[in-house]
Design a protein around this nucleic acid. Sequence first.
DNA 1: CATGAATGAGTTTTCATTCAT
DNA 2: GATGAATGAAAACTCATTCAT
Lengths: 206, 206, 206, 206
Amino acid sequence: MKMSSGKASSEKQRAARLPQRKRGRERVASLLAAAASCFLDKGYDAATMTEIAERAGASIGSLYLFFPTKQALARSLLSNLADELSGRLEAMKAATAGRSAAAIADALFDALNGFIAANPVYSLLIDVTGDERWRQVVRAQRRRQIADLFARAEPPLGARQAQRLAVIVPHFMRISLLQGEAGSPSREAILEELRLMLRRHLESGG
Amino acid sequence: MKMSSGKASSEKQRAARLPQRKRGRERVASLLAAAASCFLDKGYDAATMTEIAERAGASIGSLYLFFPTKQALARSLLSNLADELSGRLEAMKAATAGRSAAAIADALFDALNGFIAANPVYSLLIDVTGDERWRQVVRAQRRRQIADLFARAEPPLGARQAQRLAVIVPHFMRISLLQGEAGSPSREAILEELRLMLRRHLESGG
Amino acid sequence: MKMSSGKASSEKQRAARLPQRKRGRERVASLLAAAASCFLDKGYDAATMTEIAERAGASIGSLYLFFPTKQALARSLLSNLADELSGRLEAMKAATAGRSAAAIADALFDALNGFIAANPVYSLLIDVTGDERWRQVVRAQRRRQIADLFARAEPPLGARQAQRLAVIVPHFMRISLLQGEAGSPSREAILEELRLMLRRHLESGG
Amino acid sequence: MKMSSGKASSEKQRAARLPQRKRGRERVASLLAAAASCFLDKGYDAATMTEIAERAGASIGSLYLFFPTKQALARSLLSNLADELSGRLEAMKAATAGRSAAAIADALFDALNGFIAANPVYSLLIDVTGDERWRQVVRAQRRRQIADLFARAEPPLGARQAQRLAVIVPHFMRISLLQGEAGSPSREAILEELRLMLRRHLESGG
DNA sequence: CATGAATGAGTTTTCATTCAT
DNA sequence: GATGAATGAAAACTCATTCAT
């Protein structure tokens, strides 16, 4: 059964087992890495559990030992990445509190852009395919964090607008998903234009 | 192999037989409508040819009579929609030539927004899943048309910037794909903010 | 598309996974046996993967676990048989070197006849249906081996004629494919006549 | 349902309708020609009724108007060819009566070889695929005619041997089915060797 | 923990044949 | 007679998941 952006419900809830020994932790890491590269290369649906296991140099049985379903695997992957990003955003809080919205936006641009460049599968899993329900949860958390960042700007932004920016800025990053199309402006040029556009907007008072 | 955003190539070439009788033309229309609704509900991968045929009240054989593969079906659907949008953009040419870039952007917002609201499956097929190669072709054409629109602005925009706007404005519309998430600002509010941001940007000289 | 003696080419390359456990090796053997009997009973095209699996007491998934396509299954089968025959021919080399062409032909008759009687599906797969390209490869190897046998005759045969005999003698065996037709002379009677004809021919100097 | 050399039984017996008008006769001829070329190119199973109709420039409905099933189409084709060959063999009767068996064999070689060169699909349908039952009937008739030819040789051949030759000589012609394999002696060279072999055999008293 | 064999429901696709116009 | 739309059973093949060793 293929359920890409499917809205299925009654799920298996047994969470991914946490490995106790070092060997196990390494295995889990290599499985997650294999999943990331496979999802990225083929897309969520076309990636098969068998190939993921193969890429990790593990057996299919081993894969299922740690991740009870394909969805759970994708969730784990996204969770890990989301946690890492969350940490970075958290770290920005202190650094950006009291600065201008434009400055915050700028810093956010850099943070998100760097993160996605290093973890492109994050964009895929949070924005495009996989378990819709889970993606919403993760997006909501990210939205909250980013809105928080903007909420601490000086001069202050309305809560509403902080919310909107928390949707808009990540959405700007999704532009990265359009891979090198011939004849199209480069991703960097586009991002710079968006960055400028946003700065001006915020400097004009939002 | 299920290839959502797969990068496969070698295709089956038996062309979609075009219907010659009225009955056939009606069938094709209802099949396309069923495909649109099914893709939208389930996503490209999870939508099955069987269900599409069922929704159209046709047999699976009938579906394959006119569309030799699932990909061909998606292509037909996207082609039709892209043609319609193309027509609308063409029509805008006369109406917007000589106007300000901001005004053109505004009109484009309305046109794209209206089109996508009426044909949400367009966003899915052109931006998210299906046949990557084909999507690029269709996007390239749209980019060309929109760049053309901006190129005729008065005062004039640089060709480069027109190109960038031709990527940016449609990308803004993709925001629509995030369906009603609880706690998130409404799609309309976001779009209005983006519209304002863009207008200011263009009025400040791009 | 069903391609019996079809001339198609581009193939799926996921190799037949070789079994690593005893259980798997037994499965593969029973699957090959089922395939042989099924091909023989129904012909290559009419034999279905489902029925082959059933005859082997396996599930369709098991069949595809070891043989990724119907063609690969037929190839494996033919390869195995060709290897066995190849071994027998190799063994004849020592035994026949230096003997007369007629004696070699006689021995070859016996060897081929015995082999085909024990493995009738060999004739089907090498001469009649299945993957044309592969069949040619296998036939070419057999031709080389048989020509080799004749090339060592005493008094010597020309290389050209050895080549021709290497086509002719196996072709004589194909007669076996005409199964018991009422009113027709028996296969054995025909083969004996052909054997005599060939011996005389060779004794007359080829 | 694919039934290549299948042994199916309960058949539809409505014979191919004989067209009354000239237009109809032309259509039938072009359908048969299309079938011949299609069977030859793709093999019996892989040839589709739709493609045959297309090649004849007719609609699928038209094809079924004259030939109620695919089998009936193949039968018609084979029947026609068999009838033509039968005529030629009949004509040989007078010309060869009283001549030596070797001379008759020689003449037969030429006749069969010429016929098959002109109608290669005959070999396919009588020897390889299609309706097994029907093929046996046609082969039996051919066997009878050829045995008849040899039975009138002078000095006389035994009835048994005439029967055997009636199997052997057509079988020699089947060699033509191995199409141009690289490294293999030419079909002509092989046929000449077989012809010589047979002549010697018959001259030595069979 | 590890492994890889086993499963079978589900998917895309094909094609001989029928039938309404 | 012609046509082409319609049908649906059946085929090849996939893959998430389970389980015995």
